[in-house]
C-alpha cells in the first residue's frame, strides 16, 4: 500500500485523471521517464506521446498528451497539458474532426499564425498514431 502516489492529469477541459497509481511512464523533452512513489521533487516539460499509468490493481491506462508540464513534489504528481485525452476516447470521429478543423483553419486565411495551424495538425497526426497503436494492441490481444 505504501507504494502508491497521487497523480493528476489536468487540462482546460477538466480533470482527465485523478487518483492513486503505482507508476507512470511519461514522455518528457529529455526522454521517457517512469515515476514511482517517493520520487524526488522535479519540474520538467512533457513532450508529445502516450502516458502509461499502472493502477493499484496492476491494470494499465493510457493517455495521450501534446506538450505540457510535469511537477513532482511530496508524492503528488501533476501533469498539466492543454491537450490531454484518454487514449481509448480517441476514435475515428475525433480524428476526422481534428483534421477537418485543421483544414478549415488553413483555408480560412493564410494569416493564421503558424503555431496554431501546426498545433492542430499535430493533434490530428497524434490522434491518428494513437488510434493505429490501439488497433495493433487490440489485434495482439485477440491473437494470444
Amino acid at each position: 500500500m505504501a507504494n502508491l502516489y497521487k497523480l493528476d492529469i489536468l487540462s482546460p477541459q477538466g480533470n482527465i485523471f485523478s487518483g492513486n497509481v503505482k507508476q507512470a511512464t511519461i514522455p518528457t523533452t529529455s526522454g521517457l521517464i517512469t515515476i514511482l512513489a517517493g520520487h524526488t521533487s522535479l519540474i520538467t516539460m512533457v513532450s508529445k506521446g502516450d502516458i502509461e499509468i499502472m493502477l493499484e490493481d496492476n491494470s494499465v491506462k493510457s493517455f495521450t498528451v501534446i506538450d505540457g508540464f510535469l511537477e513532482v513534489s511530496d508524492n503528488v504528481v501533476s501533469i498539466i497539458s492543454d491537450f490531454a485525452m484518454k487514449s481509448d476516447d480517441i476514435n475515428d470521429e475525433v480524428i476526422e474532426k481534428a483534421k477537418k478543423y485543421a483544414a478549415e483553419q488553413k483555408q480560412k486565411n493564410d494569416n493564421v499564425p503558424s503555431e496554431i495551424a501546426e498545433k492542430n495538425l499535430q493533434k490530428a497526426i497524434m490522434a491518428l498514431k494513437v488510434l493505429e497503436h490501439n488497433k495493433l494492441k487490440r489485434k495482439k490481444r485477440v491473437k494470444y
Binding site: T28, T29, S30, T40, S41, L42, I43, T44, M45, F69, S73
Partner: peptide, 14 residues
Amino acid sequence: DHIFEPSANEVLKS
C-alpha cells in the same frame, strides 16, 4: 528542493 530538467530557465521560458 526541485530538480529542473533541462533547466529552470528553459522550463520557465516555455
